[in-house]
């Protein structure tokens, strides 16, 4: 399969460029990316300036990524994230200050499908991970789909998911839903008293006052800002 560019369908979403297998490539990284970017409509007709690069099995170096910069600049694009199944590419990207994400090769296609900008209403393609036990200070639970935690998230602990974060317990640490850019993701907890909440790129501090007794609460993005409201009794678990 050749390298593929998936255009953003909303202004808040990045474009995704998925590189073909390194073995099937004909030229350098710059040639490959330049070829794929040929599918880009003229400037002004696309919605986003952000680009996510899924590198596949390319063993990218810092020099490779540096070479990309003028090409992207010329197109008016900004590299916001590198996703790779190999640590080499991630280290190179991280050393240039680009956000990185490890993609496991076996479910890389599934993870990819979850981010297809063509269906932004579907929050998760990887189903639900259920984790039992309290997250204590220093713990960090990271999940590729949605997560249901049976336990508390203590102050100093972090929980993040590409989809929703649901806590059957008290949320007092940091929670990040939609950590790969899903704006529909939400955070639900029996008691929502977090230090910090993040949904996609938005950040909010937790509320100061105590919650109303007996209500589960949820946080979601409303017009680009995080809002907290009582959660509906049915959480609508993914299939």
């Amino acid at each position: 399969m050749a390298s593929q560019l998936l255009l953003a369908t909303a202004a808040s979403q990045p474009h995704r460029l998925r590189l073909a297998a390194a073995a099937s490539a004909t030229g350098s990284l710059v040639a490959e990316v330049g070829y794929a970017l040929g599918a880009l409509p003229p400037r002004g007709e696309w919605l986003s300036e952000e680009l996510v690069l899924a590198t596949g099995d390319w063993l990218l170096t810092v020099a490779d990524l540096r070479e990309l910069e003028p090409l992207l600049l010329q197109r008016g694009l900004r590299l916001v994230r590198v996703e790779a199944p190999v640590p080499e590419a991630l280290v190179a990207a991280a050393s240039l200050g680009v956000v990185t994400q490890l993609q496991r090769p076996e479910d890389g296609t599934a993870a990819y499908a979850a981010h297809e900008p063509t269906d932004p209403t579907e929050p998760q393609g990887l189903g639900l991970t259920i984790h039992q036990g309290t997250l204590r200070s220093g713990d960090h639970l990271q999940v590729e789909g949605s997560v249901l935690l049976l336990g508390d998230v203590n102050p100093g602990a972090r929980i993040s998911a590409a989809g929703d974060v649901r806590v059957w317990g008290r949320l007092r640490g940091v929670a990040h839903a939609g950590c790969q850019g899903n704006h529909q993701a939400r955070i639900v907890a029996m008691q929502l008293r977090p230090l910090q909440l993040r949904i996609a790129e938005s950040v909010a501090r937790g509320p100061e006052d105590l919650p109303p007794r007996g209500y589960a609460e949820q946080a979601l993005l409303v017009g680009g800002a995080i809002a907290i409201e009582p959660a509906e009794p049915i959480w609508g678990l993914p299939d």
Binding site: G133, R136, S137, G138, D139, N154, P155, G156
Partner: peptide, 16 residues
């Protein structure tokens, strides 16, 4: 104290 409790929490996680 919050700092002592936070550290204790971390240690409990490690003990687990």
């Amino acid at each position: 104290e919050v700092s002592a409790v936070r550290d204790a929490d971390r240690v409990i996680g490690l003990l687990n």
